[in-house]
Design a protein around this nucleic acid. Structure first.
Lengths: 243, 243
DNA sequence: CGACAGTTTGAAAAAATTCAACGGAAGTGG
DNA sequence: CCACTTCCGTTGAATTTTTTCAAACTGTCG
């Protein structure tokens, strides 16, 4: 394995104070508009803390102003599965609308700033503001499409292809946020990646090793560098989107 | 393999004319209310016909009044994956809201009656009728929960467990519709089941064989009988819900 | 310093896939 | 109505992929 020779430099703004979103995300669910209508709670959460747990009463939606979280689905018999990772600018909790309680765990992957949108008010506010209503519906539909696209990947790709696809997806999302798409920190542990990819963590480790051997990436623990995006794209089995 | 000795009897009403929904589905998206506000097109489709294809302009939601369909996700490189099956009383097409075009294929599994809800009108109607608006949002959230629950199954269960889970899910859904939960027809071919379960069709065939050997089920081609629901539930790794 | 969670790697085992063959059912066209 | 083709489903054997088990290593945190 090739070592990373560059000194580690923070890739994300980590201070909550002096952050401003690099990209306005024109069509996403934007809680700024809601601030005038509902009382938005701003919370700071540390890595490992729960935004909410499955079974707790459903009382709010959560907008990730800064940071990232993982979604963890739970079965009655104790099985667990990471169903996704959400970065800043994304909404979580909407999947539980219509249930009295949350249906999954959401856990911060790093120090994050979360805007809490109390639920009955946020829905009535959405009802009054046609644009917000549409945005909520769009956010839900988008989540469905994302989940289905991922199911397609899980159902049709090998371990190595899944890992490559995962890295490319992360890279594209960081890029959309204005961060580097070729050098970023994996905020989640191998086990969480493995769960998300429906693999074991050893398999993820080996797949990363294979991508390193292929010259596509450099990895040192959680620091990741994409050296050859096109090759990674070919391995992922997708048309390599040349940036 | 044990042969089914019972003569085949139709389990579903197949004539479109004299059907009435056995269960009203209190909280589901109900297009009856919309009929007064938007022009609902009623279509009859035969097995194998497309309700819509990925890429076609998004122009309507589809309510399955009678019958069943499969949802097929497509990748640019030709990979395909069945992401779900929808039975009567369910809504399809909502995942494409916010895109200009549909994002998956939807194909009838049998002769079906489909109510076509033209899109811009249906949304404005929903906006005017608060109850319908909420139901659309609930239907979307429900779809997310269903997809995530299925991802959990795909990520944590073996081939045989997935097949058992699939059969129990189908049984529960038929039961909710007022049909037999222990004797029904698999409307989809083995390859479609396999795709949905992220397996190969041979593996599905073998898993069914194992369930037959375990005395849980009887299968003859597409006719399925659940002999021991509790045992099937134990194999599925879920708490066997005693009906 | 020592414990520990997280990561990597190897070797053996298990699970699922691939390839191949076969049989039955349904549909087609004469 | 029959011969023929095709699709669907099942089964076996070999192969591949992934998992399991074990061990070692590394950085982090008390």
């Amino acid at each position: 394995m090739t070592a990373l020779h560059s000194a580690f430099v923070p890739l994300h703004a980590h201070s909550l104070a002096h952050f401003s979103a690099p990209v306005p995300q024109q069509n996403a669910f934007d809680p700024e508009i809601l601030c005038a209508h509902v009382e938005v709670q701003r919370r700071r959460v540390e890595a490992g803390q729960y935004l909410y747990r499955a079974g707790q009463p459903f009382r709010a939606l959560f907008f990730i102003k800064l940071g990232s979280v993982k979604l963890c689905e739970l079965a009655e018999d104790g099985r667990e599965h990471i169903s996704g990772f959400r970065l800043q600018g994304e909404l979580v909790g909407a999947e539980s609308i219509g249930c009295g309680s949350y249906t999954c765990d959401v856990i911060a992957l790093e120090t994050s700033e979360i805007w809490e949108l109390p639920y009955p008010p946020v829905l009535t506010a959405c009802a009054r503001i046609p644009e917000m209503q549409l945005r909520l519906i769009h956010a839900l539909a988008q989540d469905i499409r994302r989940d289905r696209a991922w199911m397609l990947a899980l159902g049709t790709l090998s371990a190595e292809q899944r890992v490559a696809t995962f890295l490319l997806d992360l890279a594209a999302r960081y890029q959309a946020l204005g961060y580097s798409s070729s050098h970023f920190i994996l905020r989640m542990c191998r086990t969480d990646i493995a769960s998300y990819l429906a693999l074991k963590h050893e398999t993820v480790s080996r797949a990363l090793g294979a991508l390193i051997d292929a010259g596509c990436i450099e990895v040192r623990r959680r620091e990741l560098r994409i050296l050859d995006r096109a090759a990674l794209g070919r391995i992922a089995g997708m048309s390599a989107q040349t940036h």
